[in-house]
Design a protein around this nucleic acid. Structure first.
Lengths: 138, 138
DNA sequence: TTGGTTGCAAAACGTTTGCATGTGC
DNA sequence: GCACATGCAAACGTTTTGCAACCAA
């Protein structure tokens, strides 16, 4: 549990009630969240925010490397999650869209060899598995 | 080089001038293409197609497992590529968006163990690497 | 005080759809 | 002939933007 203000200051992002509230929601979530999901959770907390502000906050957080943005297959909404020390991959149910985190990332080694082979300066990667979760494949 | 008509028949897809032309473009491309890119290439060839037809063709091809659809980071346009015998992953330049195919897929083994661990019936996966290509990182 | 942040409404963008017409089989 | 494919325009859902008011530093 970190201080939201600190995280923002660390990245030289001005603090605000909205930004702290968004960080709080992200921190408590085990999965990446869509903008409208974040927006709804803010509303539930009786925070009155406009949806465009949520979009702007997510863009800011992402460009400051506080969050990461991703788009899963067959769903055009972007999803955001806090960048934590341990980066995560998910296995996603093609029926219910639930995202389950995987234990660890198998790509560290691979990146080195691919970097050599392609001449790319590799900055990141994205890995998602898709399938039917145990509830949906009965 | 396969016959476009055959591929469509094989998948019990009705053939048409437009569908064949789209398949021809996909076959000649080394990278996944966006709808508007396909649309423009059709226009260059003096084929008059409407953009909605291209969308419908891509949806049809994808639901018939002739093509696959994907969305890369920081670009909300979907990209399509022919499903060939060898399935591919790409390393994508974060500056110029160029997609370079990787040699092989390292995930076969991994899928099995994850399937065991999570109870998912795994149907597919998505792996993308991001970085600066050798032209852009000078 | 000053420049970043917000709300609102409108616009932009990629994509989908309804409907009438055309076409492969 | 009939089901499916197409063109056009309108609708859709997500995201972005212009502008005026607001607020953190």
């Amino acid at each position: 549990m970190f201080k939201k203000g600190n995280l923002l200051e660390l990245k030289s992002c001005r603090t605000s009630k909205n930004r702290k509230a968004v960080l709080d929601i992200l921190e408590k979530s085990k999965n990446p969240l869509t903008v409208d999901c974040i927006y709804n959770r803010l509303r539930e907390k009786k925070e009155t925010v406009s949806i465009s502000t949520v979009y702007r906050i997510m863009e800011k957080l992402t460009s400051n490397n506080i969050t990461s943005k991703s788009i899963i297959m067959d769903d055009k909404k972007a999803r955001y999650e806090l960048i934590r020390d341990d980066h995560k991959h998910y296995i996603i149910c093609i029926k219910c869209n639930q995202m389950t985190p995987l234990e660890n990332c198998p790509l560290g080694e691979l990146e080195k060899s691919i970097s050599m082979a392609t001449g790319f300066n590799i900055t990141g990667h994205k890995l998602e598995l898709y399938g039917e979760c145990s509830s949906c494949n009965k």
